[in-house]
Design a protein around this nucleic acid. Structure first.
Lengths: 142, 142
DNA sequence: CGGAAATCCGATAAAAACAGTCGGGTTTTC
DNA sequence: GAAAACCCGACTGTTTTTATCGGATTTCCG
């Protein structure tokens, strides 16, 4: 189980915007320095905008910025915007697998897990990343 | 974010085996009645076996059965076997995105979430599904 | 022994999702 | 009006997913 690069890229971008909030709109050009292909990133930023997480300013001197304060944006917002809502269950939708047992426990289990994940993601706010002190020793990602 | 059908199919199969534990090996033919393509299911059961979750008996009257008690098998075991370990982070592995900030908070965040998900999955055991009473009203999956 | 029941396994193939690119359009500033 | 930027749909190559197929092997049982 892993999420696609969209989730990662999306968070990178959001983190960048959080770091530069208050500095006016950040052009794609600059955001792309986080190491995401520029043209691809443009697509992804489109998603984030359509989901209302960021706003954009068109024209020269334009760019992207957070649509609301970093403390009002959760990891869940970002992941949902980039990867769609969490859907572990939805069963096979043909009844053959399920209606033999009353209210299929498989479905119940996935629901449990989805709820937990959603809760965890909702707990973490974008601002938490800004405030996190540098306590660790390792300087680079693996 | 959703898991592939493998996760679902895998859990269906394990649930079936749990329901029939103590009845001797269940042939693929029977397990497939849960609504999974037989030939595909065969592959998946191979994974579960190689991961040590189930054992198989070859030859006539053979089949598959749980390798240990349902109470000793967690959802995490199953998901890991079917989808590989949870890998939200692993960063982009080229350092351009990360080493500008000391111990990249993006990585930290994904680690947090992965841990939470793993914990949740580990909490739920296969036996929990068997013991769950039929309290709900809806008889079929959506 | 020999056939039937079953698992095992690698190769293949179709379909979908993902990752990224491209070209042209629009908006805004200076 | 030119340049800077976002906007957007279409397209392409690659990878992953979801299977299917053919045959090999193992085991039971009469």
């Amino acid at each position: 189980m892993k999420l696609s690069t969209r989730g990662k890229y999306g968070l990178y971008a959001m983190y960048y915007l959080a770091q530069h909030s208050g500095e006016g709109p950040q052009p794609l050009q600059d955001i792309a320095t986080i190491g995401v292909p520029k043209l691809y990133l443009e697509q992804l930023l489109g998603n984030l905008r359509r989901e209302g997480l960021i706003s954009s300013v068109r024209g020269a001197q334009g760019g992207y910025q957070l649509a609301r304060d970093a403390s009002e944006i959760t990891l869940l917002d970002i992941v949902d915007a980039m990867e769609g809502p969490i859907e572990l269950s939805e069963c096979t939708s043909d009844e053959s697998a399920c209606d033999k047992s009353c209210s299929c426990p498989v479905r119940w289990v996935w629901q449990q897990v989805s709820d937990s994940i959603n809760n965890e993601l909702k707990k973490i706010r974008l601002s938490d990343m800004l405030n996190k002190p540098c306590e660790s020793e390792e300087p680079t990602c693996e």
